[in-house]
């Protein structure tokens, strides 16, 4: 017997997994797998039938469990609740938007007003330039770089 290529074995295994998880109808399988699986099914009809029939028999059983339908009462209650719920939600959304906007605007305004006052007084003092205000001080400041150094009297002159 000729061994089957790995790709075929993998494709069969994947079809088996899909049938076990999602049932025997390929239309309900994940889209990403469907094309490849359907190609394998078309190429191997006998093996595919065996795999899928097995899954379909469980599908048929599961469909025998019917769910209750909603009553007229709950339908009316749900519909009559809608206008109030929608209105309240829209109002809440508006209030949140307005309060959010107002809070942001207030925060910006407060920041603009308060920022100069919030600067540390020490930093402010250090950063501010100090100017001399009287003529003597101005002259002293101007002459500072030119002040001649006071030298020791020369030893030769003394002797």
């Amino acid at each position: 017997m000729t061994p089957r290529p790995d790709s075929l074995v993998a494709a069969e295994a994947r079809v088996r997994q899909l049938a076990e998880s999602f049932g025997g109808d390929p239309a309900r399988w994940p889209e990403a797998d469907r094309l490849g699986a359907e190609a394998w099914i078309a190429a191997h009809p006998a093996e595919a039938r065996h795999l899928l029939d097995d899954a379909r028999s469980l599908d048929r059983l599961l469909f025998a469990w019917e769910a209750p339908r909603p009553t007229e009462g709950v339908t009316k209650r749900v519909q009559s609740a809608a206008p109030v719920q929608v209105r309240q939600s829209r109002r809440r959304s508006w209030v949140l938007t307005l309060t959010g906007g107002a809070a942001l605007a207030a925060a910006c305004l407060a920041g603009i007003v308060a920022a100069p006052r919030l600067v540390d007084p020490v930093v402010r003092a250090a950063a501010a330039p100090v100017y001399a205000s009287d003529p003597d001080s101005i002259l002293a400041e101007a002459m500072t770089p030119w002040e001649a150094p006071v030298a020791e009297p020369a030893m030769e002159a003394r002797s």
Partner: peptide
């Protein structure tokens, strides 16, 4: 079935609240 109806009703009421946002 009765509990299911209550749950479905509550879910849709939440849907009404969710729809505008």
């Amino acid at each position: 079935a009765a509990e299911a109806e209550d749950v479905a009703q509550e879910s849709l009421i939440r849907a009404w609240r969710q729809a505008p946002v």
